[in-house]
Amino acid sequence: MDKVEPLFQCKNLAFHYPLGTVEVPALHALDLTLSPGQMTCFAGPSGSGKSTLLRILGLIEPIQTGDVLYRGTSLKGLSEKQKNQIRRTELGFIFQHFVLFDTLTAVENVEYFLKHRGFSAKEKRERALNALNAVGLGAQARQRPRQMSGGQRQRVAIARALAKDPRVIIADEPTASLDQATGQQIMSLLSELGKTQGVTVVLASHDPMAMSFAQQIVRLKDGHLQAVESRSKLTVAPAAHVAPRTEEAPWCAI
């Protein structure tokens, strides 16, 4: 079997939040490896550190103790400019509350973050429309978020992340603001896109339904890594940056 280079490697990662004069620990000496091309879900109850871990990988929170390697390169000590560059080109973000611009149409929302990538106006529009089509919202390109349902808005957010052609999609509780049925649709879409577009999806969720779509579940409790469960059933299509995997295996705890 070809060895796949890890996408993320967390080494002795710890994090705390300042609360006045007290430091509240959120993560404790965590070691973790994430492989490319699969959907990984950080799971755990509220306060387990799953969102914190997700945000550290997304370069939203700083690396306080330990290190995180991204494709073999340490993320610790990167300048703000370097972090910006990675966030622009390598990462796509999906948040619980969608965070769309109400004053822009769906297609304008999607193409907004393409402006620093050197694309022409035509290229940006094309990419945006393609991304909207991929999430099934091609016909709603000119609608504004307030004219859409929660599920549609989250699809726009997914399209916005996809349009950047990221290597990784970081999704923080993507289904928390949605009803069960809509949430299932969104997770199904994310899973499908991950497979067809070859994008690694890393999400944080406490929803068992969302977890059921993941190939790998990282369970956290009180900032400690409890378990990493892997399901090796691969249906990922080969992509330029993903090594093909053909083995099938049931869920097993590592």
């Binding site: 910006n84 560059q85 973000f93 973050f113």
Partner: peptide
């Protein structure tokens, strides 16, 4: 605030 966070998260300086 969260809009600002989203803008920054997506690479806006």
């Amino acid at each position: 605030k969260e809009e600002v966070g989203n803008l920054r998260a997506n690479g806006e300086s």
